[in-house]
């Protein structure tokens, strides 16, 4: 699927090299909505899938961690960064793998994920309902039986957050799907993943649209209950 992207020379776009502190993201505040909206969080915009892409290195994408509470992000470039930023309960989700498109929870027990061997107890279940309509977290049995380490490409089996349109190579977010989470410390939260393209456009047709810039909305219930009503 990415083979065609490799052949395309992506023209120069404004790129900010990632620095290992919070990236420039815009937060949108709707007074009627208790959820937090994060708009255009830059992920590893200096990496590319293919060769010959102006301003980008062809290499694997660096994982970016994100904290629901502080909105801090950290880039994990190497072993030193891993040692410093991963094995704690301060981050809740990370944007990892190709194009930072695999959104993974912080759980110390899941091998192969950034939080492995750390203290995190994160988990994720998919609820196919619009974000505002998810008003409470499902039972623990649901997390045990259907909990996922993360979500990425939905190949049609219903277990991802975006479809990759094989006609035009564009990531299309699944609509009206909510991810109910346990944060790193075990609070219930809900998340909707809205876009990977800069500016959160409703429809992307341009193969060269700047990415990855993550737009998403989340709500954390800090009182320990399952109540996820954000409005």
């Amino acid at each position: 699927m990415i083979k065609h992207l490799l052949k395309i020379a992506i023209p120069l776009v404004t790129i900010s090299l990632m620095v290992s502190c919070s990236g420039k993201d815009k937060e949108i505040v709707d007074p009627k909505d208790a959820a937090v909206m994060i708009f255009d969080l830059p992920a590893d915009t200096a990496a590319s899938m293919g060769e010959g892409v102006d301003g980008k290195d062809q290499r694997q994408f660096y994982t970016i961690t994100f904290s629901f509470k502080t909105k801090e992000t950290h880039v994990i470039r190497n072993a030193a960064d891993s040692a410093k930023y991963l094995k704690n309960a301060e981050w809740d989700i990370a944007f990892s793998k190709e194009y930072n498109s695999f959104v993974v929870v912080n759980n110390g027990g899941i091998a192969g994920t950034p939080g492995y061997q750390g203290p995190g107890v994160g988990n994720l279940v998919i609820v196919d309902k619009p974000f505002d309509q998810v008003t409470s977290a499902p039972a623990d049995t649901e997390f045990e039986n259907n909990g996922l380490a993360g979500v990425g490409w939905d190949n049609g089996n219903g277990l991802g957050w975006f479809f990759y349109s094989l006609n035009n190579h564009i990531c299309v977010p699944v609509r009206n799907r909510t991810y109910v989470l346990k944060t790193a410390t075990g609070n219930y939260a809900k998340l909707e993943l809205l876009n990977i393209y800069k500016g959160n456009p409703p429809v992307v047709t341009d193969l060269f649209w700047p990415a990855p810039y993550l737009t998403f909305r989340y709500y954390v219930q800090t009182d320990g209950s399952r109540n996820l009503k954000n409005r």
């Binding site: 219903g158 006609n167 035009n168 699944v174 609509r175 009206n176 429809v203 047709t205």
Partner: peptide
């Protein structure tokens, strides 16, 4: 026409 959006939910 190629449909460019999968809308299993919408």
């Amino acid at each position: 026409l190629d449909i460019s959006q999968f809308n299993t939910t919408d």
